[in-house]
Design a protein around this nucleic acid. Structure first.
Lengths: 198, 198
DNA sequence: GTCTATAGGCAGATAGAC
DNA sequence: GTCTATCTGCCTATAGAC
């Protein structure tokens, strides 16, 4: 009989990705090693290489899973069917959760290290940002139709500004370890897009 | 007779700092080695260790020089005596120049790698951001007095938002190698602070 | 001040037993 | 699938000659 019931233990590849993801988000792709992951999971380095032949493949898998999880979160937000400002607030709260876990956005971290990364990872990073901006662009257009948002440029430009602003707020909040600092920047960023009271 | 005339060749410590700075801004502190600097300057690794005993000391020196150069640039902007919006634009153009050189802000890069850095470097990074925000706070208050800027929160909050926004725009523009992308985000960020036409 | 030589450790990666 | 053992190369750093 197939195991349809969820179990507390997850498969080894997922546990590897979990540990590696946390390490990359906290220390960067050049700041962690297979040995770090192995010691954290109490497995050997060779076992890691069995599941992910090289660091490049591990990196690709990390981005792929992270982007898929992000896409799921955005879909979930759409499913709630709220107003555009509410969706933007929900979007920003994803970033706040990342900071609360003492992490950087995975792809923000990799954007900093971009020049040192293998090509497949680079392509995937750009895809992540493109997907986020495409979703935000749709929300911003919705807000304009609703009259809940007032843009002074294109929706695509505003989407880029939101992604940049949130990534930067996350980045600069790291040294301070200050969530309130992030929140202030995020709120200011989003309220600057809100329509004047009608 | 003392050498008062400037020469084309600069001293070795400066040349080391120049090469290391470029490498850190492009590849990160964990993404370059003494060997990289040595081969670029055609000197031995041992010579590097003579001037900077360890990587930590080199890192401290890098931040110190970078912060001092930034402080000089801000002083120069003050010396021009323009309006607050003009000063903000000049401030943003410093970041644009960094991006045009295909680099990340040194301290923005180090903020990403923060968890992996020695304590002295951490302290210096926070000092850099504090100094920048203090200067921006002064400019923003000037703008409020002049009536050229209209803040809906404290000057300190707006200063944080500007630093975050510019660092984030720099970070996300890296994968795309797109200066226009940065410019759009910077302009949007600054115009959102401008006072409505009186 | 700069060099060669080298130490000692850790990186990513592989072979082959179980 | 996971292990031990090992390889090769690069890392930071130091010793000592010039």
């Amino acid at each position: 009989m197939a195991r349809t019931r969820q179990r507390a233990e997850v498969d080894t590849p997922s546990r590897i990705l979990d540990a590696a993801e946390r390490l990359v988000q906290m220390r960067g792709f050049n700041g962690f090693s297979y040995a770090d992951v192995a010691s954290e999971l109490n497995v050997s380095k060779a076992s890691l290489h069995y599941h992910f032949p090289g660091k490049a493949e591990l990196g690709e898998a990390l981005i792929g899973r992270y982007a898929a999880r992000f896409a799921d979160a955005l879909e979930e937000i759409d499913g709630r069917g709220g107003s555009a400002p509410a969706k933007l607030e929900a979007y920003a709260s994803i970033y706040a959760d990342v900071l609360r876990a003492h992490r950087m956005c995975l792809c923000g971290m990799l954007a900093a290290e971009y020049d040192t990364l293998p090509k497949a990872m680079r392509t995937a990073i750009i895809g992540f940002f493109d997907d986020n901006e495409a979703w935000l662009g749709g929300v911003l257009e919705q807000g304009q139709r609703e009259g809940s948002l007032s843009l002074d440029g294109s929706a695509a430009d505003a989407a880029q500004t939101i992604v940049s602003g949130l990534e930067g707020a996350l980045l600069v909040a790291r040294p301070y370890g200050d969530v309130a600092r992030f929140q202030a920047a995020a709120t200011r960023l989003l309220t600057s897009l809100a329509a004047a009271a009608p």
